[in-house]
Design a protein around this nucleic acid. Structure first.
Lengths: 248, 248
DNA sequence: TCTGAGGATTGATTTGGGTCAAGGCTGATC
DNA sequence: GATCAGCCTTGACCCAAATCAATCCTCAGA
């Protein structure tokens, strides 16, 4: 993907090459033109920390390509992943000076940035961008709350099944495939990253993945390629009773 | 508090009788006048469910008085509290039809409501309200992510200490008292509610509260009134290394 | 003053997942 | 094709928190 046809911001409107949820029907093109003038790009290597918690953060940004994680850490090293940034996702906190978590590039990462002050001024002058941002933030909040149920109440096996189900869904919606029956996809995360995401240790993740395989809920090809013979059975294991609509 | 001088919405601007974070310096009074025309009130008794997850939700609202909780539940009854609504807090999801969690009144509750459709139209026509809502939502999201670290990685003792610290801070900011040294406050939650909030069982909550008392971190008068002789010691127990600024 | 109910405490026991430790893959590099 | 590093798996053991169970407050209402 070249810089030219990359989405300029997760607020990008009209057609959406990356994720359906990034489409906003309300925005006009005039605001986008103004956005274009202000943007610049930053790139990071895999493993690099984009922002440290507590750092002054003078920009807001959206992911153009690559994956980044948001993590909270305690001083003794315990870490909890609190979010995943995929292409078209937005990061930054208009109206606040410092970051509340670490942002770490897990792959090579290209971000489209805006200096904070001009961006805030633009939020005031072009309300549609603010509306889009509000929608996205509300989606994130719903997802975060769903995740709190997982972290607080689910068993290790349910946690793994839930994560696999979410990744399977996301992958299917990307490929415009049905979210049922036989599905297969690549895990974008190491066992350790899965553990940080789920509030487990990597050993427990490994054991539970093996258990799901032994029980025929999933099939593995190598360590990263997963096939789910029957998506409904996976959902049963995840313990969810809702349709999961808003996670996609 | 009478209906007249109650805050009409958490978006209430200018002076803020309830929580400092509800003040928005940007808004003018004209938007408020328009809001006034649209609002109506609903009241609920303690224990009543305001909204069921999955229900159609045709209004957005803010809490005028009382306390409500947001909870996620699994079909086998496991529940996780994912948020607390205090006076001036906002609930609702402009742009989406159904609720993603249960809202339950834990005390008698008075809410100031707006029908969703007119509210959304108002969001478009009066951007300042949208900005305020965006700010609040971003705050909620930061708090939710902080909570994910607690749920995923903290020990029972640290969870209890964290919760007590948050309640102590909130109480202190309400009373405009310093957040250090000796502090005391009432717990607004039962042990069971604390357990649902922290992803623990009520027995564990009870045991850890007793342990903190035994160790002199807190003092108890009855079951609900807590005194913290040294706030810094409580913070140590909570395992936080940050200043907690954004939670207030 | 008694009674009952809801909340809280405390103890005994079990267990899910953490911790520690020893290898096993696999693919990049020489 | 040997070596090494990063990632993953598996086993043995342990411990924090869950579970099961018995009491205890305390306060509202009879």
């Amino acid at each position: 993907m070249s810089l030219q046809d990359a989405p300029s911001l997760s607020l990008h409107c009209g057609d959406c090459p990356i994720r359906h949820r990034a489409v906003c029907s309300r925005c006009g093109s005039d605001e986008l033109a103004r956005l274009e003038e202000l943007k610049y790009y930053r790139s990071y290597e895999a493993g690099q920390t984009v922002i440290w918690s507590g750092d002054r953060m003078d920009f807001v940004a959206s992911v153009v390509s690559g994956i980044a994680t948001l993590t909270q850490t305690m001083e003794d090293g315990r870490t909890q992943m609190v979010g995943l940034l995929l292409p078209s996702d937005f990061v930054g906190r208009p109206g606040r000076e410092t970051a509340a978590y670490n942002v770490i590039a897990t792959t090579d990462l290209l971000m489209c940035c805006f200096r904070k002050r001009p961006f805030e001024e633009m939020l005031v002058s072009t309300p549609n961008v603010g509306h889009r941002l509000l929608e996205m933030t509300l989606d994130e909040l719903d997802a975060a709350r769903e995740w709190m149920l997982l972290l607080g109440r689910k068993t290790a096996r349910e946690k793994i099944a839930s994560l696999l189900a979410i990744i399977a869904r996301r992958d299917a919606s990307l490929k415009l495939r049905p979210m049922q029956g036989r599905m297969s996809f690549d895990l974008p995360l190491t066992r350790e990253a899965m553990a940080d995401y789920l509030g487990l240790t990597l050993e427990t993740v490994s054991r539970q993945v093996s258990a799901l395989k032994r029980d025929g809920i999933i099939e593995l090809e190598g360590k990263r390629h997963v096939t789910v013979p029957d998506f409904d059975r996976l959902l049963d294991e995840a313990g969810d009773d809702y349709d999961g609509g808003y996670l996609n």
